[in-house]
């Protein structure tokens, strides 16, 4: 009897435990976990490769190059004049130099590294410049017109088509340069991107820009990003202000040499010097 009772106890316990153990092995994922599991893995640090917007190489030579968007004649004439009068003589003041955001679409043409943080409701593109771009993938529509205003990054809504992130961006501030030649769009431009990981080390972004004010037709370019292959890739924010020795004076970029640095003072009295950053200039 004892043996039977013991056997019965085992069976009872097994009947209680086994279903639980089975559920633990293939426990149903939470809705949030399912949503994450369905997303592609774009982890890592990615570097822009040769590009239309931001050519690699020495700006002293490459500034002679230019992109060729399908500008309307008046825009082409203005861009050509800007290249001749400002860019080629080396007088161009790149807003990045003085701390402005990168701005769409230049965010997708990084001279430094970028990261894609892919979440179910949003994708963040983090730029080392530094800059941050938000792409909403939570199913929302664009806001009504009276809740939109021009911004450097615009307003981006995305959705997934299998492993491709399709993004539409509107409300981008006109006149924000797309590259070092000063190429610009109007504030009516719209960008449609198809971002996809095509192999373990390559992501591509096919960007079609429509600009009814500046362009005669849509302009499509493709950006490529290559994954850095270190085991522990390093990412750094590049502040424009930390040790800015190229101030812009009267529209011309200067260089602070050793003698000029002696003129950089603390904004406070000497005994309060620790409260100022090392390179903070006097106000």
């Amino acid at each position: 009897m004892t043996g039977l009772r013991g056997c019965g106890f085992v069976l009872v316990v097994a009947a209680m435990v086994l279903p639980w153990a089975s559920r633990a092995a293939d426990a149903p994922l939470s809705d949030q976990a399912k949503a994450f599991a369905a997303l592609p893995d774009w982890s890592g640090v990615w570097m822009g490769t040769g590009t239309l917007f931001e050519r690699p190489g020495n700006p002293n030579t490459d500034r002679m190059l230019r992109d060729n968007p399908p500008y309307k004649p008046a825009w082409e004439a203005a861009y050509s004049k800007f290249l001749g009068d400002v860019v080629r003589p080396g007088k161009y003041l790149d807003p990045l130099t003085v701390g402005y955001p990168t701005g769409m679409l230049r965010t997708m043409a990084p001279a430094r590294g970028i990261q894609f943080v892919v979440r179910p409701e949003m994708v963040w593109v983090i730029h080392e410049r530094p800059d941050l771009r938000y792409i909403y993938t939570d199913g929302r529509p664009f806001p009504p017109k009276d809740e939109l205003w021009p911004t450097f990054e615009g307003y981006s809504i995305g959705h997934w088509e299998d492993d491709t992130l399709v993004v539409e961006t509107i409300s981008m501030m006109g006149g924000v340069p797309l590259d070092r030649t000063g190429l610009i769009l109007s504030d009516q431009a719209k960008a449609t991107e198809r971002i996809r990981k095509i192999d373990a080390r390559t992501i591509t972004d096919e960007i079609t820009i429509e600009d009814p004010v500046a362009f005669t037709r849509p302009w499509t370019i493709t950006r490529r990003y290559t994954k850095r292959n270190e085991q522990y890739p390093r990412v750094e924010s590049v502040s424009s202000l930390e040790n800015q020795r190229n101030p812009v004076v009267g529209g011309t970029t200067q260089i602070l040499l050793a003698d000029d640095l002696a003129d950089v003072n603390s904004p406070y009295t000497d005994d309060l010097r620790p409260f100022a950053l090392p390179k903070m200039p006097a106000p």
Binding site: G57, N58, P59, P89, G90, L93, D94, T97
Partner: peptide
């Protein structure tokens, strides 16, 4: 790589 300020100096 290239500096982002003008290198005309």
């Amino acid at each position: 790589t290239a500096a982002h300020h003008t290198a005309s100096m």
